[in-house]
Design a protein around this nucleic acid. Structure first.
Lengths: 277, 277
DNA sequence: CTTGACTTTAACGCTGCGTCAAGGTTTATG
DNA sequence: CATAAACCTTGACGCAGCGTTAAAGTCAAG
């Protein structure tokens, strides 16, 4: 019969760990003195403890371990738990590897250029959202202006605009002088189906599908500089083994008339997917 | 000016996150109403928040992020932090990969054999420890018996035996009929230098060097079955890309006279190292 | 003015123990 | 045998990053 301190030494673990395992019910002492509460362990318990430590080394939680060690568990259930753990470890590793790639990219850039341009690119997941919009072909880099005009021409009392002004661009050659835009507003679920502008054009409601991987960057200032955002995003996407998967968006978080363009805040988003390795 | 709820929507984060970031000082709202406590954010803050989220995606802690965003930080310091993070990620990945390997091995075994023999193998780190011992060449599988005899022949009042009875085996052919053993007791730091047994033999004190990677398994029962432990350990070591690096040990946690050998509890330990890949 | 939609601060929860702290037990020593 | 040293007990906080109620104050629409 060992007391916790002795047993912790032969087992090479801390006494606190033994108490904790007793408390949560994964490993109880062979005997507990009813009056003093002292825990007494025996050498015969060592293999069991070693089992538990080995399972812990697999990354299993104490609760999972308790289940695995219960009498009434089938071999098949154990295998199921291990397969689950395997899958989780694989996912965790790929996440960590991705982070590592991000860090490495950033380090390379910092060593090339003192000022870091590639600073605020994030991955997001977007849910499906109603979108009240209008599709038109207009000169490049003017989607915001159209939105601004629409914003003006809109009978504003007819709806409560909750989401942001957003534009989707179709067509994949960004060097062209014109572009095919769908401009409008992200809406709450109970939005109107159609809105007629004061100049007669109509906005129609549709559901934008969810996107589970969007890269996004935010650009502050006049739209003349917006191409910097695009090139940075493009570099990032290539650097990290992604490719563009669908239709890009601009979100106008702060939309001013052309003469105050320096205060604009514009977000650029692209849905992406990993290139198969 | 957005209130938290609105800002959380345009930024695609939860309101709780914004409050938390305010609380810990990584991202404060542009304005806070002094009387109501309401937080008000502006669109111009979006790039900053995106920066923070991007840094978070690297796996940095909020405290690190706060430091990186402070004005008074040099480019060199930032690179240092990133290099540190890179190193930590690499280590974390290799740990996870190792766990994964453990899980896979276990799954393979479970699919071959319903009863899992390879159940309680753990990696340990041992500190340097004083060892009061005696070296002899004796028949295989009898180290425990010697220890038992020594135990009897020892003038027990002379020392407080705190550690376990332990044996080290020299020579690397385990199939041989004799083996070179060093048997003795792990001792506390203030132990006696020499002890003379009643049969005239002497135990001498020396310091066992620390081992930072020991594989260990615990076997219960008569020593006749002990080879099972050895073979299991050997398989495990090979399976996981390790090799034996030094002198193996047996630790006798429960040492009985030969006629009660079925109650013995014996641990087998080998120092190992990863084979370079 | 009344809702209802939002906001605030406060606090627990989660994981697996490490780390005191206050107060009994056991054991070694004088 | 008295007493101190060494060990044991339960209890509780801490950590990281928010998610999740909960109670109570604000704000905007009708």
């Amino acid at each position: 019969m060992f007391k916790v301190g002795e047993f912790s030494k032969v087992a090479q673990v801390s006494a606190r760990l033994l108490r904790h395992y007793d408390e949560v019910g994964v490993f109880a002492p062979a005997h507990t003195d009813a009056t003093t509460g002292y825990r007494y362990y025996t050498a015969e318990q060592l293999p069991r403890l070693n089992q538990i430590l080995a399972l812990r080394d697999l990354g299993l939680s104490l609760e999972q371990i308790r289940n695995m060690l219960s009498e009434s568990i089938t071999n098949e259930e154990i295998r199921g738990m291990l397969r689950l753990q395997k899958a989780q470890l694989e996912q965790s590793i790929s996440e960590q590897a991705f982070r590592l790639q991000l860090v490495e990219t950033r380090l390379r850039y910092l060593e090339q250029q003192p000022a870091s341009p590639l600073y605020d690119i994030a991955l997001k997941t977007l849910p499906a959202q109603p979108f009240l919009s209008l599709r038109e072909t207009v000169p490049m880099f003017t989607a915001g202006s159209i939105l601004f005009m629409i914003h003006q021409a809109m009978p504003r009392h007819q709806f409560k605009q909750r989401g942001a002004c957003t534009a989707l661009f179709y067509g994949d050659n960004f060097d062209d002088q014109v572009c095919d835009w769908e401009v409008g507003f992200l809406m709450p679920d109970d939005a109107l189906k159609t809105v007629t502008l004061s100049d007669g054009r109509e906005l129609h409601l549709r559901i934008l599908p969810p996107e589970n991987q969007m890269v996004s960057t935010i650009y502050s200032g006049r739209w003349l500089g917006l191409h910097l955002g695009y090139s940075t995003l493009g570099e990032w996407i290539a650097q990290h083994g992604y490719q563009i998967k669908g239709i890009g968006r601009e979100v106008f978080h702060q939309l001013h008339p052309p003469e105050h363009g320096e205060n604009n805040v514009t977000e650029i988003q692209f849905p992406v997917e990993k290139i198969a390795v």
